[in-house]
Amino acid sequence: MATMTSEKNKNPIIRFLNMNTSGQTSGRSLPLWRQILLQVICLAILASVMFPIMYIVTLSFSSKTTRPSQLELIPKEISFVAYQQVLDKPTGNPVTFNQLLKNSFVLSMGVGVVALMVAVSAAYAFSRFKFKLREILMVLVFIPLLMPAVGLSTPLYLLLNQVQVKQCADKSIVIQPIATCEDGKGKLQFNLRDSLWGVGIAMTATALPFAVWNLKGYLDTIPKELEEAAAIDGANVNQTFWQIVIPLAMPQLAVTFFLGFIGHWQEFVLTWLFLSQPEDYTLAMTLYNMTGQYANSVPWNRFAAMAVIVALPVAVVYIALQRQIVGGLTTGSVKG
């Protein structure tokens, strides 16, 4: 009772800090004045969170390409013109929306699957076996993680750029750097650097160490008893791996995959650096391409519609797997 009276004398900020934070008020319900105060704070935060989102959603439903001179947060009109235009002709180049979607999807999916498949066995080895070079090899896998993607981009650019398929003057096809045309020139048919394959390779280079690390952190938390029981029953290491460890690690495999997928879906650094052909563009690149140099030339409603389209898959995945993603990230980093 004494605390109650002393609380009343303090200013509202102190009172806010003084509130019971345990989520347990031993059955007592929240006093109305406090409920209202907290609701006001919550709504203010909600408004600040929703403000930029509503701004872009409202723009996307506008039929005008210009930027509104006044702030509009609730759509005055619901027009799907912008969405239709973006789906019909997303860029100035003759590239269909489906092509862009396919590029984005194939790239994110391919890199995610390859990285995961290769990473899981490595993670298992690090988590379960004791062997001579374990420490050294673990450090080796860890080293690339310290390098931001931009840092690894220079050598990858240079090396992938040397792999080119050329047609020589005598109509023969050569693959550099294995062979070159006699005159040293030739018509460029394919440049690995300037292709989805090349970007995929570069993205895998950064995705793979992360996947190994994230999966190892999780495998460490799986109790060994099940595997030991399987060994007693006569299962060899490979059988244990496929029939016990993989099924148990499924949730974390999914989380690692989706974390990667979200990142690859929004990947911009490597794609924008490597790719130059409009038919190879991804959705994220197209979005950046639309912003252009000058704010006045940006087709704002189409940009907004594209932004919503790019954001939607990521948003859905993230919200659906929110708990697992946060859990997966923190187990990974604690162990890392």
Binding site: G23, T25, L30, Q39, V49, W265, Y318, I319
Partner: peptide, 28 residues
């Protein structure tokens, strides 16, 4: 902590909405 207050109305809605900034691509 604020959202963990027992008896707060609309808690679930707030929790769901407050995660939205994380899911919007950085370019947007």
């Amino acid at each position: 902590t604020l959202l963990n207050t027992e008896g707060l109305w609309l808690k679930r809605i707030y929790r769901a909405a407050y995660i939205l900034p994380v899911v919007v691509p950085p370019l947007v």
